[in-house]
Amino acid sequence: MENSAYSPGLLEHYRAPRNVGVLPDADGTATRQNQVCGDVLQFFVRLSGETVDEVRFKAEGCIPTVALASYTTEWLRGKKKGEIERLDLAHFEDALGSLPPHKIHAAALVVETLRAALCDCGRNPH
């Protein structure tokens, strides 16, 4: 069965999320919760110099939160960590299809949590 509430791209990532789980040797990690809807997101990041070597995530959240987090783990791998600045709602919608208006906060949660995990990298050398 298909569901038309979300784009095929979002649903594909939701049904088969990439890089779910803990990264034991992460350089940085962060957990954030959307205080309104209650979604919880956690990112783990490992760097190789300034380059993102691996990203994993865990989430207790709605379709866009999981799908955007999953997409981000693939997209950021091998990129300089500063490239996170390219991640915004327009980027996500170009890649995965549009979000319903009441779901836009999912994009903000993903970017905020990932940025916090990257900031954590300098503070938490393993």
Partner: peptide
Amino acid sequence: EGLLISLDLEGIAVSTGAAC
């Protein structure tokens, strides 16, 4: 919502009280 859509993709319609 994740539960609801996951069930919907299996052809099962229910509802949820979750936010958004």
